[in-house]
Design a protein around this nucleic acid. Structure first.
Lengths: 137, 137
DNA sequence: CCTATTCTCTCCAGCGACTGGAGATTCAAG
DNA sequence: CTTGAATCTCCAGTCGCTGGAGAGAATAGG
């Protein structure tokens, strides 16, 4: 039986967050000691690890709850789990593309006026200008 | 003179968000009509566009406020603006790398048991397993 | 067994960055 | 002048936590 602190250490999820997940129904209420402290079993740790992993992948808690409710499902329900993963993958791809565009832009901004600090430089202008760098300044 | 709705349309920032920015001190309090409605000038629109752009680039409002306070700065202050852009660029690069790792993993998960819905499939397992797909299942 | 230290408990408040509703006013067009 | 859209303020809620207060429980050492 694991204390909440051990769960935290083993899963990498902070103690208050574990309680938060319980409150949100993502983790079942664990058994308690006579002194009212939570004691978890292996299955709870697995479930928490699942949540952690899915969070890392960017899934919102809603989706994670949906997946958890499908645990051990078969047939059509599995398609739903599949859909969630698929949908999330799409979202992720978009996010990456968007971030890459932004990175290029930040590159431009950060290097806009290297070594030319003698006048109001392009960093601020560049942030304000959505088109593109005014070129030579 | 622009109404808040026009500001919203021109900048792509929602009306309540504009008020929120004002409350947070990112936008100066605009002049008002006799009936107490906000009226903005061009400079305000520019500033809002700046904020919008910087937000798109992932900067937190704090950093944006810092940049705004440096507007028209020279010399050493410019280095600070420069630093903010640079720091943000680093953060962004990390985020992209992380997301790309996650994308690969989602690929694996989403395709894990295509067409094999006859048993409890790998989608759920894959989310729970941080190592890697168990191979053929 | 007692004590000291470390966990853990509950409750509640706050973060960032909005978002949206209620209910009252004001503006602009016809 | 009337109507309908836009705006006003205030406040509550969202998401996913995070951290503090103050109290009680577990555990290791003496």
């Amino acid at each position: 039986m694991l204390s909440i602190g051990e769960m935290s250490r083993l899963s990498g999820v902070k103690v208050p967050t574990i309680r938060f997940y319980e409150e949100k129904g993502l983790l079942p209420r664990p058994s308690r000691t006579s002194g009212n402290q939570r004691r978890y079993d292996r299955a709870a740790l697995d479930r928490l690890t699942f949540i952690r992993h899915a969070r890392d992948l960017g899934l919102p808690l809603n989706d994670i709850a949906a997946l958890l409710s499908l645990e051990g499902a078969t047939g059509a329900d599995l398609d739903r789990a599949h859909d969630i993963a698929e949908r999330q993958r799409e979202r992720l791809r978009e996010r990456i593309l968007r971030l890459q565009r932004l990175e290029r832009e930040l590159d431009r901004i950060a290097t806009a006026c290297d070594g030319r600090h003698d006048h109001v430089c392009a960093v601020l202008d560049a942030f304000g200008d959505h088109s593109e760098c005014a070129g030579d300044h």
